[in-house]
């Protein structure tokens, strides 16, 4: 029965749903969790990296965190190949805006422009939608630090804390419980790690399984964003004490 309405992205089902978009969302719900937390002095992104094989090269660059321009980062939940297309697209949009106006693109503008692309694939037929949700972290001088999320339908929204990917509902619940207004970046980092550790399948957190990124202002008031290196993540895990039942507790 449903075959009649899900072979094309452009067709509504009788219940008013777009099956292809829902299937895309389903694909994302199996991807590693990504979490974003907004603090008063910065934004944190954390994501679970699904290790598929021990033979996989681990020391290459981040695969779920991407720089979009000088003041924005994003975390990916979903199909990585799809994400790369959209990320490259948004980098180009950001640079075009910079070239045209000689100022950085406002965060929401970039998110909206990217979501316009995603939306296009839910309406112009024949192609499947992008199987990716993003969490964007950024800074601009109109709204300060910002956190957004977007999904395959092309909807986006701003958040104080949000998540995407597997176990997203339980992550949201945990975030809702523990989020406090006017959190500092340090507290936000800890919260992100704590929530991530609880939503992940494996009990032990380590740099092999998570990725981490922050956006903040430096002492000169310039935006600095950073995708953390594995060693830095391990250090952070140790200092915040969110290390799970790791083997070094027994050693």
């Amino acid at each position: 029965m449903s075959r009649r309405y899900d072979s094309r992205t452009t067709i509504f089902s009788p219940e008013g749903r777009l099956y292809q978009v829902e299937y895309a969302l389903e694909a994302i719900s199996h991807a590693g969790t990504a979490i974003g937390v907004l603090a008063k002095d910065g934004v944190v992104l954390a994501a679970e990296k699904k290790v598929t094989s021990l033979l996989l090269e681990q020391d290459t660059s981040a695969e779920k965190m991407y720089v979009l321009n000088d003041n924005m980062l994003c975390a990916v939940a979903g199909m990585n190949a799809d994400a790369l297309i959209l990320i490259n697209h948004s980098r180009v949009i950001a640079q075009q805006y910079l070239k045209e106006y000689n100022e950085e693109i406002p965060c929401e503008t970039l998110v909206r422009r990217l979501c316009d692309v995603k939306q296009g694939y839910t309406q112009h037929g024949g192609l499947r939608p992008f199987g990716v949700s993003f969490i964007f972290a950024g800074f601009d001088d109109r709204y300060g630090f910002q956190l957004y999320s977007s999904n395959p339908s092309g909807n986006y929204s701003g958040w104080k804390a949000t998540s995407a990917g597997a176990n997203t509902s339980s992550a949201q619940t945990l975030l809702k419980q523990d989020y406090k207004d006017d959190m500092t970046l340090e507290e936000a980092k800890e919260l992100a790690l704590k929530v991530l550790s609880k939503t992940m399948d494996s009990t032990s957190l380590s740099s092999e399984k998570i990725e981490f990124a922050t956006v903040k202002l430096n002492s000169k008031g310039i935006v600095v964003h950073r995708i953390w290196k594995p060693t830095e993540i391990d250090q952070l895990l140790k200092s915040t004490g969110v290390v799970g039942d790791d083997d070094d507790e027994f050693s």
Binding site: K99, E100, Y101, N102, E103, P106, T109, R142
Partner: peptide
């Protein structure tokens, strides 16, 4: 579109372009 007016330097950059 953006709910905020362009600033002078951004306008200058745009017009120049």
């Amino acid at each position: 579109r953006e709910q905020v007016d362009l600033r002078p330097k951004a306008i200058a950059s745009f017009v120049r372009g």
